[in-house]
Structures are given as C-alpha cells and as structure tokens.
Design a protein around this nucleic acid. Structure first.
Lengths: 199, 199
DNA sequence: TGACGATACGGACCCACGGTCCGCTTTGCA
DNA sequence: TGCAAAGCGGACCGTGGGTCCGTATCGTCA
C-alpha cells in the first residue's frame, strides 16, 4: 500500500487547527461568524495549511464532527444495550434517537455548522447515510411496520440541528423535556405504525 | 393613513423582478447559483432597484415564497374540507401535511432557497410560526395526544425542503408514493400518540 | 553529521457575490 | 410646462472562501 506517513509538523498543525476550530465554534454565537481566517489565526497557522489539511470549509467541519461523533459510533456499533447491536429493535430505536439528540444538544453549534452552513444538503453526507441505514435496518425488524426508509428519515428529521437549536436555544426547552418528548413521539410512531405505504 | 401609493414604474419593475427570479430559481440546478446580479439582469433592471424593492436576498425569496403560498394559505384559512377549518382534527392534520408536502414538491428549488440558502434558521421565519401554530392547535383538539407543540415540529420536519429534494430529486421517489408514506407516518403518530411528555 | 529531495508552510493574492451610493431620469401633481 | 420627489442603475466596496508559490522544515541516506 502506498500510504506515506505524513510529516510530524503536519499532524501537529492538524491537531492545532482542530482544537482551535472546536473552541471557536463552541464559543461564537453562530457558525457563520467563524471564518477560516479566524481559525487559522487562532491555531497560529497560515490559511494555506488549513486548506491543505482539510480541503475546504466543509471538510474541516466534517472532520471535527466525525471526531466528536466517534465515541457514539463505537457505542452503537459494538457497545452494550440499549445502544449496541444486541438490543431488541423495539428498545433500540428510541435509544438511537436519544443518542442522536443528546449528541446534537452537546454539540449544537457544530451540528448547526455541518447541517446548515451553506454546504450541500446533509442528506448527501455519508454519516447521514450511516445513521439512516442503521435506523432503517432496525426498524425493519419490527413486525407490522412498513415504510421503514421513510420512517427513518422522518424520525431523524425530528432531531435536525436547527430544530434542536431553536427549541433548546431560542425557546429554552430543558434538555430532559426534549428527550422525553422525542421519546414519546418515537413511541407513538412505533406503536401506531402499521400502514401500507406502497412498495 | 400615510400610505403613499408607489410609482407606476416601481410596481412594474417589482413584478419583472419577481417573474425573473421565479423563472431562474425554477430552471437552475441549485438556488445557490442564482445570484442577485443574475436576477437583476434577467429582469432588465439594475441591482439597486432590486435591493430597494426587497431589502435583501432573503426578502426577495420570501416575497416569492409567500406569493406562491397564497392560494394554499387561503384554502387552509377559509376553504372547504379537508383543508379548511370545518374539518375534524383527525382528518385535518394529514390534509395539512399533505398540502405542505405538495407545495414543496411543486416549488422544490424555491423552498430549498428559503429554508436553507444560508439565511437564519427557518424556525424564525414568521410563516413557519403560522404553520406550526395552526398544526399545534389542531393537534390539541385530538383527545389522548400530548406534547402537541413538539409533535407539530416533528411532523413538519418530515416535510423539510431538503429532505423532499433528496427523496424526490436524488432518489426519484414518485410523488404519490411520498404522499402515501407521509400519510402513513402521520397516521401512525396520531394513532399511537398517547404519552406523558412532561408539563 | 551534512546534504539534498520531498513535503509542508504561510500570507499575499484572486475573485465572486451580497449589498451600498449617488448622479441622473422618470413620474405625476399643480 | 415646471419642478420636487421618487425611483433608477451600475460603478463601487467589503468580506470571505479558496489558490499560489517562494521559503522553511523534515526525514533520509551516506
């Protein structure tokens, strides 16, 4: 394999940029007013370095997002119930959605930057594909429930970053209340969810 | 009332701009690559005129959107069942959502431009407030259903412009299938939707 | 350890786009 | 027909993402 190991300063800079960006996104009001130049300056690096390392703005944000998401992904792929694969579907679905919601609550600005932020729709990002595929798969194992692909989309849509931001930020809905409401909603979908939505 | 009637050429130009913008958004692939200059040029007008008439990009898009939405609004506010106010809640909810979905299917690019497009979250726009308030009100009249505010948000989230674009455009899901799936999903929510989601 | 190619750095630079400004034209009232 | 006021339009500006290339650094091989 032609994997050339990257230079030491390159990795160090990469880390610095990630850290700086993380801090900036966390502290600034809106993702919009964190510029690439800001990040470069905060990391003590030139803009060129930053773009070389991540390609473009979206690339940087995506990298940050994936890094933060890593523990969750692990818990979902190989962790214990109620997130891990050994959980019965009926319990796993709400657990997955709760995990997504909590993640977005804990990383509001970042999620906002990724999902909105002017980059092409979130639905083309491969990490969305992953979540959707997973959720759809679990939904399919629940008997008497059809249209799992659409249902997965619709459930995930209830955790969209800007909705979360609106409720948690603007309307000051407390965290636990939101979680409870999402759980309720999910339960409703799973309970009443028979139907015949086409092929 | 100090309402000064606007000059004749002003209205004419306003119309020209709306028409031109409408056409451009409809034909171009993504709203992103319709620039203000494009619109001005297509309308045979200077940029200044355009900004004077609509304030900024968001204002123009909003004006377009509202204009297109007008018939739907009318049907909802004072039309016959199943959209009008005389409809029993249990039937009206799916009808409302279907209307929203159809509208977004018929105005994909435009809805996309308004909801994403880099302007602040759709949840601050007053037309979203209207839909949400209306839907919440109707939901509240369905006995045994709680958390109507969140439920309204979640249901509307299933009709988000970029999701619609993804399904209808990228994945080529036919219109009627999408409508059926949304109807199914809604039915599930209404059927199974008891719960105790907090205060 | 010295030297040399490959790799990465960084900030000056470019350009597209939203938005503003102001001298000129049109309108419509008297 | 004259004359404000309202409106016009396109040159102009600031900002921010992304590029370029001369220079500094790294890692390797002798």
């Amino acid at each position: 394999m032609p994997e050339r190991k990257p230079r030491k300063d390159a990795v160090r800079n990469r880390q610095a940029v990630l850290a700086a960006a993380d801090a900036l996104f966390a502290h600034r009001e809106s993702p919009e007013d964190v510029t690439m130049a800001d990040i470069a300056a905060a990391a003590g690096v030139g803009k060129g370095t930053l773009f070389r390392a991540f390609g473009d703005r979206t690339g940087l944000i995506r990298a940050l997002y994936e890094a933060r998401l890593e523990p969750v992904r692990e818990a979902v792929e190989a962790g214990p119930p109620p997130l891990g694969p050994a959980t019965p579907p009926r319990q796993r679905v709400p657990a997955l959605l709760d995990a997504v919601l909590c993640f977005k609550l804990d990383n509001r600005r970042l999620a906002l930057a990724l999902e909105e932020g002017g980059n092409g729709s979130p639905y083309q990002a491969e990490h969305y594909e992953r979540w959707h595929g997973l959720l759809q798969g679990v939904l399919e194992q629940i008997p008497g429930l059809t249209g799992s692909a659409f249902t997965a989309h619709a459930l995930l849509a209830a955790t969209r970053a800007d909705l979360v931001e609106h409720l948690a930020g603007r309307e000051r809905v407390p965290r636990d209340r939101m979680r409870a409401q999402l759980a309720d909603f999910t339960a409703g979908v799973l309970d009443g969810g028979a139907g015949n939505g086409g092929s």
